[in-house]
Design a protein around this nucleic acid. Structure first.
Lengths: 194, 194, 194, 194
DNA sequence: GATGAATGAGCTTTCATTCAT
DNA sequence: TATGAATGAAAGCTCATTCAT
């Protein structure tokens, strides 16, 4: 279907050329239609990209939710590690989406920035509450402060791996993933043995 | 001087609007000259931006070198922490440069990508060798493998803070910085007590 | 139709102002459309002019072919004279095309020069073979060498009249045409009475 | 000297790129000065080119005068042939000047066109009167009408060779030159044997 | 004599968008 | 649904020219 295809191609071009570099003509060419035809589906360029970014962020959120659901039955450290691996795998598999995602941070459309901000908050809150829930379930006597600290640690490591994705080659990235795993083990172990 | 001013304004506009969104006219307006005058200093748009990006990356490297030099006499954990704080402070103080830096990763000019790659390698190697040197000086019996591991851990945390810079508000960021400090202490402590 | 009209106007402006002096804006104005619209029909300025020059040279060739066909039944000297008169008439009637044609010799676009060279060869060969055929039909015992000589003489006179077209006024030109006629008669007579 | 060098380079660029294609910058580069410096020697672009064209046309006239003077003592047919050979040699030796000369016919500056017209008349009158003088000296009883006819014939052949210069290769051109010689002989012979 | 710096005007071209079909 | 044709606006860039030094 064209509506969907348009969004995918728009994202691809956005990740390659930026918002102003992604032109209606090139997108239309890539989809196999004429530029004028895009306007049947979307009112204008901005509307097309807002739809595209919405999908991008929704995908990101859904991926994390799915990853979490698939590993819910595992031990807490395995879940944390699975989430980290999920982040990396998801972004590696669709680097176009990943660079698009990064570019959003510097997007020139105000509405996009607002939308991104909202998404970030939603995502943070969701992750925070999910990880908190998991930790409470696993450790009876864990206090709120420790939970908060562990979640933040997870965020730092997750973000560190994510940015590394764009900066290092596969080999270095895998080394960092291994180190991150050890880090998770130590983190969880610290709670247990307290 | 106009040559220098042009570069700064170009970076500002790049960080705000991306490469294609940063127009010669707007840059010229901002500098206070006419668009045609830019071409007296730089052959074309690409040349201007390459010069700007070069300066951006050089600044980044110099900042890290200076930060390190200023804290060289301190204990190893204090140096690591100072570097992390230096990264954050430097990027916070010039967010325009920081978003420009991030955008470089998705820059549409091939020559830029190559230049960025080279810079990244230089930077990584420099950081790696400096940190390795510091660790060897501080701990007589530390082995190569452990050094490598610690450097990578530092990279993860540094990158995590860096990306957090663009995603979280000041409060959360400060929390993460505190956590990162604890992390550094633990890391160094682990070596000492081995 | 605009595609055709564009070509004609482009030629007119080329003959008046040269390649760099013929601007897309002025051509568009003359056709009655906006500059941007030209790009719907032709990829760029060069493509437009190449199309225009192609038509110019094709017209020239066709005109010569038609002139010849219209006079084929006449005596050989009358045919030769008709061709000369045809050349002059055709160029006089469309001086814009004629000056455009002359300018092609000094055109700054390499592709044009190549195309012109090819056309010139095609034209020369066609004229040579046609005139040779006519001469062989008219004179049983004429030898190859003489044919070649006569064709070359015709070329000299034709070119002489053509260049005179751009240099002399109508009166002088008509005198030269009369002289050229006498020249043709003498030339043909020489064969007959050999 | 720069004034002279400027003119030569200007002509070269005019012959290559046309009036609008010959830019002050490129000319300055070629001469080895800065564009602003041209304005010390010539008020503006038009003044520079008018000076250049003036020199071009003067050279042409002088060349013809010299050629004639060098061969004045020869027989009339040899003089005519020498003039034709002189035209070809002069133009072949400086094709840049030749194409510049041709381009003048289509020059976009009105003042140039007027100047060219004047030159053409001067040149025609000079050639006419010189050739008439030579013919009168050589043939006592030649009448005015015949003189006029012969001069015009010479013009046709001269112009034919000249245009051939731009259209044919060296081999064909030499063939045409030979034919032109025969033509001159016949022409002169016709008078003698009348 | 020469030029560094600057600019108004204008160039070719691209862009998002429109609208009748 | 889709597009051929068109366009206003603006892009990057070049040009001839000026002028203080």
């Amino acid at each position: 279907m064209n509506r969907e295809k348009l969004i995918d191609v728009a994202l691809k071009h956005y990740s390659k050329y930026g918002y102003n570099g992604a032109t209606m003509r090139k997108i239309a060419d890539d989809v196999g239609i004429k530029p004028a035809s895009i306007y049947f589906f979307y009112d204008n360029k901005e509307a097309l990209f807002i739809a595209a970014f919405k999908k991008l962020l929704d995908n990101h959120l859904n991926m994390m939710k799915n990853t979490l659901d698939q590993h819910r039955e595992k031990s807490i450290d395995q879940i944390f590690i699975a989430l980290l691996r999920g982040i990396i795998k998801h972004h590696k598999e669709d680097m176009a989406a990943t660079t698009a995602y990064i570019s959003l941070v510097t997007a020139p459309i105000p509405e996009i920035k607002t939308y991104l901000q909202t998404h970030m908050n939603t995502f943070s809150e969701w992750l925070n509450s999910e990880l908190s829930g998991l930790l409470t379930e696993s450790f009876d006597d864990i206090n709120k402060n420790d939970i908060h600290k562990i979640v933040q640690q997870f965020n730092i490591v997750g973000n560190g791996l994510f940015w590394g994705l764009n900066v290092y080659n596969d080999e270095v990235l895998e080394q960092q993933m291994t180190i991150a795993e050890h880090f998770i083990y130590t983190m969880i172990n610290n709670i247990t043995t307290k």
